[in-house]
Design a binder for these strands. Structure first.
Lengths: 193, 193
DNA sequence: CTTCGTACAGACAGATCTGTCTGACCGCAG
DNA sequence: CTGCGGTCAGACAGATCTGTCTGTACGAAG
């Protein structure tokens, strides 16, 4: 039934290769033929599972979103008993790891939005991703910050977005540390414990 | 000698159309033929002034950068006598205007970087743009913040980048106001007058 | 009037990209 | 053994894109 631990199933190979190439070189810059050749998958297999290239792109984005959300959420949940500030800063520690990874090339969702500003399925994948981080921050802050909680969460998301942009465009991975410092100052200014 | 006030010269028409289309729809998504048709310029004229499409893209980016830098710098210089905090906040007021413009679709440099991650001329145009804002903030902060000035400037640039990303991906132009609030808190925390 | 520089219009070649289709192969269920 | 679902390999059509080239038009300079 399942893969007998040889090389992964075709769809998995396809998605792994698409992730690598689309993220590293840009989506429109990478043709379907290239993805197929490097993943050793037949064209007919691709189109048996995805209606168009854009469907594959949307799937690529959803997988990226899931992976990051899981990783960040886990780090925050691991500190369930600690203070809201400590939990927020735990998220920023993960951001630091993400932004320091060798192949980091910016936010895959911002990048995809630049390439497909008007495609419904891709924009939906992006909108989907944009929801989880403010929700996570709001959840962490809910016990201590009442009304101002969502505004504070939005400000923290901005710090994340700014760190991502800077790490990419300025090739400055230390921007995650700068963002964490600002986050700490912001939380202190709002008397979050 | 100069244009007798009819329709602008071909290169100017070309650049205006390229700016509009590249920014609104993405660079790779817009073919040269489309730019030529909408600007009513002949293909031979384009290639007499630009060696390749990418050269035109680089020019488009340089013009965008110049326009924004001029506008922001002017607002800051207009408050030459005022406090550093007031001058920084004046920049954020301009950001608010920029992010609230109807056709706003994110940072043209981040967008271009997503589409041409490996093209030397385009990456050079992006790197060029990335320098002026931290330099402006550093200049404003130099009189009051000594050593910490450049770190503070970097943090403020992050706030700008975060506001741009949020305004684009979340369609939330009010993110400029959020960023300005954080900037004010940050400057206060560093006792900048 | 002629010449020169600039621009226009559009054909053209060559490359490339997406999506369809054909045919062969292979493991497994019946 | 036979049939079937899933996969591979690659040809193919049709569209599209960049960059070159040809020929024409027009105003200014000489």
């Amino acid at each position: 039934m399942e893969a007998s631990e040889g090389s992964p199933q075709p769809v998995e190979r396809l998605l792994a290769t698409a992730d690598r190439l689309f993220y590293a070189e840009g989506i429109r810059a990478v043709g379907i033929d290239r993805v197929l050749a490097e993943s050793r998958v037949a064209k007919s297999t691709l189109y048996a599972h995805f209606r168009t290239k854009e469907d594959l792109v949307a799937k690529y984005l959803h997988r990226r979103s899931d992976a990051t959300r899981t990783r960040v959420t886990q780090a925050v949940e691991d500190r369930a008993g600690q203070s809201p500030t400590a939990r927020i800063l735990a998220a920023f520690e993960v951001f630091d790891e993400l932004l320091s990874e060798p192949g980091f090339r910016g936010c895959p969702f911002a990048n995809a939005s630049a390439e497909y500003p008007h495609h419904a399925g891709i924009q939906a994948a992006i909108a989907d991703d944009r929801a989880w981080l403010p929700a996570l921050f709001s959840r962490v802050l809910a016990p201590v910050a009442g009304q101002a909680g969502s505004g504070l969460a939005a400000a923290l998301v901005q710090l994340y977005d700014g760190a991502v942009a800077g790490a990419h465009l300025d090739r400055a991975p230390e921007s995650a540390v700068t963002a964490a410092r600002t986050a700490r100052a912001l939380l202190a200014a709002h008397q979050v414990p």
